[in-house]
């Protein structure tokens, strides 16, 4: 337990010292590279903005991710259970996923002018549902036939087999994908906030830092984003422990 908390904390502290030293030794002014000691004043000066903007970023990421989970699991189920649908949908999905989402942002912003919350959620969703859909479909389609047979031979319906076996068996893959998706959704939200800012979200705060050449503010936003990202990631890890903890082998 000590090692689990103390070691990462020590690593972060060492990293900050190294960063501070780097800036100090090179004598970089803070418009070239901000140092950790500049960050706290920058944060404190705009603390109200950090909290409201941070909240905007957070809730839009979570809603986008929630949508990605629902749609991703839905598509994954369709592709996992039907060979035909898998063959039909897979190239479409791969193609859609290959489009850099930065190019989709202006299109979405034009399509739904003014609906900023909706647009941001939409981009967060679009960028993050792919890994979920793929992992669920692979999890379902690679279910060993014996698992199905033990219930099917007793006359269980497809739905029963799904709930009792296929779904729980796919959970470890699902959470693996969710860890990737949560980071992606976060990138999606920020992409929208930076490329098409409406004065909302940490991305917009970053953008205003850029306009005002306030480098410490930009760096402080980066740190705030990293912090939110870590929080979201570990929420997913905690959920994984609760729902798919059985997949973790004990070290014995």
């Amino acid at each position: 337990m000590f090692q689990k908390i103390a070691v990462p904390v020590a690593a972060i502290v060492i990293f900050l010292i190294f960063w501070e030293a780097l800036v100090w030794i090179n004598g970089w002014p803070n418009y070239k590279m901000a140092s950790p000691s500049d960050l706290w004043p920058a944060f404190w000066k705009f603390r109200d903005l950090f909290f409201t903007m941070g909240w905007d970023t957070l809730w839009r990421t979570v809603v986008g991710l929630g949508l990605a989970v629902v749609v991703g699991v839905g598509i994954g189920m369709i592709m996992g259970f039907s060979r035909l649908m898998r063959d039909a949908l897979y190239p479409l999905l791969v193609g859609f996923n290959a489009i850099p989402k930065a190019t989709v942002v202006p299109i979405v912003a034009l399509m739904f002018v003014g609906a900023h919350d909706f647009n941001t959620v939409l981009i967060a969703f679009m960028i993050s549902f792919f890994p979920i859909a793929v992992s669920v479909s692979i999890g379902l389609s690679t279910l060993e036939p014996e698992y199905r047979d033990i219930l099917r031979s007793l006359g269980a319906s497809r739905m029963t087999i799904f709930w009792k076996i296929a779904l729980p068996k796919t959970l470890p893959e699902f959470f693996g994908a969710l860890k990737v998706a949560v980071t992606l959704a976060f990138i999606g939200t920020n992409l929208m906030e930076i490329v098409s800012p409406h004065g909302r979200g940490l991305g917009a705060l970053f953008d205003s830092g850029k306009t005002n050449a306030d480098y410490p503010l930009m760096f402080a936003v980066l740190i705030a984003l990293a912090f939110l990202g870590i929080v979201l990631y570990y929420v997913v890890v905690a959920l994984e422990k609760i729902f798919a903890g059985w997949a973790e082998r004990s070290p014995t």
């Binding site: 060993e144 014996e146 047979d149 059985w246 997949a247």
Partner: peptide
């Protein structure tokens, strides 16, 4: 039925 693979549900 019982198979070569015991197919127990890990959870």
């Amino acid at each position: 039925m019982a198979f070569q693979n015991p197919v127990l549900l890990e959870w």
